[in-house]
Design a binder for these strands. Structure first.
Length: 265
DNA sequence: ATGGCGTACACCGTACGA
């Protein structure tokens, strides 16, 4: 039985609750990591998800950031060894969650979700924090890979890895999300021992994962591909499909991001 | 042209996002 996993920056779990439930059913997702839940744990809509057959482990904060791992109760048997934030990297901001999950098929994954800092402005303290945070993440990936973990690292990386991932590469040259230091930091996370599943070539061409709310960004396909799924070789060799589902981006009151899906055989 | 739009918190605007 294939296992369907996803990452989605929902831009507020409260506002996108119905979208999330509808989409996870429609796309038959077994496990999804979410970013920008934007709420404290006490106010996270656990009960509504539970009623929809979904479990969640969460790491939230007020107003900003916040991540979660949502699993389908009927197909994910266990969620264990939950990690909150990057081990050894103290951080006030809530941007990473990981857990060992086991699917009813017997497939085990170490599934990590990340919300990489945006960076705000080139050269700013937040930009340096972004690069530092990514460096810490690469260190954690390396230790997981060394331990032979069946790691899947997915999330909003806030980096468009190549010019093909930018709707207007000339206009975007040198801007936040496409600078060389950001792309190098992303490449170091991958080269810590993972495969960027997009490079498997199993996807349709010309797809982005984020479009600006302003100026009809989605309608004009003025987008970026900044949401990614990376996987350890033992997992990536079993992936049969990688896709960005633009359907929920066209719904009423959408997130500005579309979910990315990978299917593991 | 740093604005355009959306979310949260709280105040009737500000911070932040990408």
């Amino acid at each position: 039985m294939p296992v369907r996993i996803a990452t989605w920056n929902v831009n507020s779990i409260k506002v996108r609750l119905e979208h999330l439930i509808r989409w996870m059913d429609m796309a038959q997702i077994d496990a999804a990591v979410l970013q920008e839940t934007k709420t404290v744990d006490d106010l996270f809509p656990r009960d509504a998800l539970a009623d929809a057959g979904l479990d969640a482990v969460i790491l939230g904060q007020k107003t900003y950031n916040g991540v979660a791992l949502v699993t389908r109760k009927s197909t994910v048997k266990t969620v264990e060894n939950v990690v909150f934030n990057i081990p050894g990297y103290p951080d006030e901001q809530k941007r990473m969650i990981a857990a060992d999950i086991e699917h009813t098929s017997g497939l085990r994954l170490r599934f990590a979700g990340v919300y990489v800092p945006n960076g705000t402005e080139l050269g700013s303290s937040r930009y340096l924090y972004k690069l530092d945070w990514m460096s810490a993440l690469a260190g954690w990936v390396q230790s997981e890979v060394r331990a032979d973990a069946p790691l899947v690292l997915a999330g909003d990386f806030n980096v468009a890895p190549t010019d093909e991932d930018v709707w207007d590469p000339e206009g975007w040259k040198g801007r936040l999300l496409v600078t060389d230091p950001e792309r190098e930091a992303y490449a170091r996370i991958v080269s810590a021992g993972l495969v960027d599943t997009w490079t498997l070539g199993l996807h349709a061409p010309g797809t982005f994962s984020w479009w600006d709310y302003r100026q009809a960004g989605f309608e004009q396909n003025h987008g970026l591909r900044i949401d990614h799924i990376l996987a350890a070789p033992s997992i990536s060799s079993r992936i049969s499909e990688v896709s960005i589902d633009t359907v929920p981006r066209a719904w009423e009151k959408p997130s500005d991001h579309a979910p990315v899906v990978a299917v593991i055989e």
